[in-house]
Deep mutational scan, measured.
Amino acid sequence: MGFKLLSKLLVYLTASIMAIASPLAFSVDSSGEYPTVSEIPVGEVRLYQIADGVWSHIATQSFDGAVYPSNGLIVRDGDELLLIDTAWGAKNTAALLAEIEKQIGLPVTRAVSTHFHDDRVGGVDVLRAAGVATYASPSTRRLAEVEGNEIPTHSLEGLSSSGDAVRFGPVELFYPGAAHSTDNLIVYVPSASVLYGGCAIYELSRTSAGNVADADLAEWPTSIERIQQHYPEAQFVIPGHGLPGGLDLLKHTTNVVKAHTNRSVVE
């Protein structure tokens, strides 16, 4: 069995187990497998329904001669939608809004960016022009300005110390501490036991640490421990890039980060 097929099978099995364990909360999309990078042309966006009122959005972007996937989250909030992270750029984010209108038909009224990198804030200006209120932590807003990236308009308070959590509509926002970046936030959907790890969490097929220019490698494993301790009931975990899975993604990420750190020390 090929690795790609095995990865998709694991996603399907995880979703099936969740649907059985929580039949009222989960209505997993039966329309197909989780979209992969090879299936999404740059400039297009796919939506994948995880649970009743919960979707991931998947886009792709060219970077350094390669094409990478990027995940975000959409959560229903009454007759409105909360968006977590842009679709990595203005063109993708405009396509995301169009796809949401086509498939869901509810307005996106608020959006949260989970850290300051372009795959999370690139497209904020498109959201703002569409009347979406954009939010991020003060740290993310400051770092985005320093980096020359787009800056969300509103500040999220109460997320300055490791372990801080605040309720934001249908989700809980959690600051686990520094990891992929010093400002990275985690998003949890309690009604569906869905954990969105953003770039602080890796997919299972990833074996290298990737972009760690703004990471705190020493603190990252401790931050992941905080996530595990705060959300032990999480059933569906979405990484910032690639295929979702279960809580095993947290341990896998820790292993990859520690291996990278150990290699760096040896070198």
Rank of each mutant, 00 (worst) to 15 (best):
F3Q: 06
K4T: 11
S7A: 09
S7V: 10
L9R: 15
V11W: 07
Y12R: 09
L13D: 07
L13M: 12
A15W: 06
A15R: 09
I17R: 09
I20W: 11
L24Y: 14
L24C: 07
V28L: 08
D29Y: 08
T36G: 10
E39W: 10
E39K: 12
V42E: 14
D52G: 11
W55V: 03
A59H: 05
A59S: 12
A59N: 10
Q61W: 08
Q61C: 05
D64A: 15
G65H: 10
A66L: 15
P69Y: 14
G72T: 03
G72N: 03
L73Y: 02
L73Q: 02
L73C: 03
V75D: 04
V75F: 04
R76Y: 06
R76G: 07
D77V: 03
G78N: 10
D79R: 10
L81Y: 01
L83T: 01
I84L: 13
D85P: 00
T86K: 02
T86F: 00
A87R: 00
G89E: 00
A90N: 08
N92Q: 06
T93Q: 00
T93Y: 00
A94I: 14
A95I: 11
A95S: 13
I100P: 00
E101L: 08
K102Y: 10
G105E: 10
G105N: 11
G105M: 10
P107T: 13
P107F: 06
V108D: 01
V108L: 09
T109Q: 11
T109F: 08
T109A: 11
V112T: 04
F116E: 03
H117W: 00
H117T: 00
D119P: 01
V121P: 01
G123K: 04
V124A: 08
V126R: 06
R128Y: 11
G131R: 08
A133R: 13
T134C: 04
S137C: 03
S139F: 05
T140I: 05
R141S: 05
R142T: 13
R142Q: 12
V146G: 13
V146M: 14
E150Y: 05
I151Q: 08
P152W: 02
T153W: 09
H154P: 05
S155E: 14
L159F: 05
L159W: 02
S160F: 09
S162Y: 11
S162M: 10
S162K: 14
G163W: 04
D164A: 13
A165D: 08
V166H: 08
R167Y: 10
G169W: 05
V171W: 03
V171S: 01
E172T: 04
L173G: 01
L173S: 01
G177W: 03
A178P: 13
H180Q: 05
S181N: 00
T182Y: 13
T182G: 10
D183R: 00
D183V: 02
Y188V: 01
S191H: 14
S191G: 12
A192G: 11
S193L: 14
L195Y: 00
Y196P: 02
G197C: 08
A200E: 02
Y202Q: 15
S205K: 09
T207Y: 10
T207F: 09
A209G: 06
G210L: 04
V212N: 07
A213Y: 08
D214R: 03
D214N: 08
A215P: 03
D216I: 08
D216T: 08
D216W: 04
L217S: 03
L217M: 10
L217F: 05
E219C: 05
W220Q: 02
P221G: 09
T222L: 12
E225D: 14
I227H: 01
Y231M: 02
Y231L: 01
Y231S: 02
Y231A: 02
E233Q: 12
E233R: 13
V237A: 04
V237L: 07
V237C: 04
H241M: 01
H241G: 00
L250M: 07
K251S: 13
K251C: 07
H252L: 04
H252Q: 05
H252R: 03
T253A: 04
T253C: 05
V256W: 02
V257A: 03
T261N: 15
R263F: 12
S264R: 12
S264Q: 10
S264N: 15
S264K: 15
V265Y: 12
V265E: 14
E267G: 07
